[in-house]
Amino acid sequence: MKDKKSAVSTSIWDHNRGVVRSNIGGWVIGKGVVNRGYEMMEDFVGKLSYMQVVIFNATGRMPERRLADFFEAVHICLSWPDPRIWCNNIGALGGTSRASALASTLAGTLATDARSYGIRPLLEGLAFIQDALRQYKEGMSVEDIVRKEAARHGGKPSMMGYARPIAKGDERVPALERVREEKGFPVGEHLALAFAINDHIAQVYSESINVNGYVSAFWSDQGYTPEEAYRIMAVGVSSGVTACYLDTRGKPAGTFLPMRCEDIDYQGVPPRELP
């Protein structure tokens, strides 16, 4: 439709008004559930792992089972039941507040859409190693790649995926290395570069690769973009959050890390008269 006075075209909205147009598929009542050309009940249920379907839904490409198993292993690595970890802490606070399990799990999971830790840093992690490999192939040395990144962060080796909060080293890396070897995935060029960077920063800065750096390199070798990896891992921490919810849900309400008034350090203006 075109408005005669203003010659404004609203055709794209008129075309989509009241009609679902999908590039994927959907439920055809009485016939089945189409998903990018597959019939889900026939082709997926009982034949694929859940993680294969998660990856398919997040990327449009069907991964082989062993690759989905690797992604699943990463989910396990992010499912720690430690309520000190920020997202898990939210789950525990949900339990002690008697919020629902689903609300608490999602609240904690949403908090990992964050810059300091969690899932969003995967965007930067994959972008870094993919860019680093491009530079390496153009002739830049590992030392120069690290030096260039460090210069951007005040001399610190703050590449996403190397070093982590709280601890030095990452126990998830050797665990996932074992899975990679068992599943028969060779070391690709991104992962080889990631380990070379790891060795260099270990010597120069006493830092090392973390789970983000490791999986970012491995998934880059498997052809995933930063955005695809981020989508696949969207709820990666959720199970750990649920575990922490469960722990405090089973105890008297309001008893998880309770605080006295004096436990807050007030640094604002002292009490004053209302004008």
Binding site: A167, E171, I264, Q267
Partner: peptide, 19 residues
């Protein structure tokens, strides 16, 4: 692979200027 605690100093108490 080794893992060790980073010598970071976390606050003893939460601070606020609001309340």
């Amino acid at each position: 692979f080794t893992v060790s605690r980073r010598p970071e100093k976390f606050a003893d108490r939460i601070t606020t200027r609001i309340w």
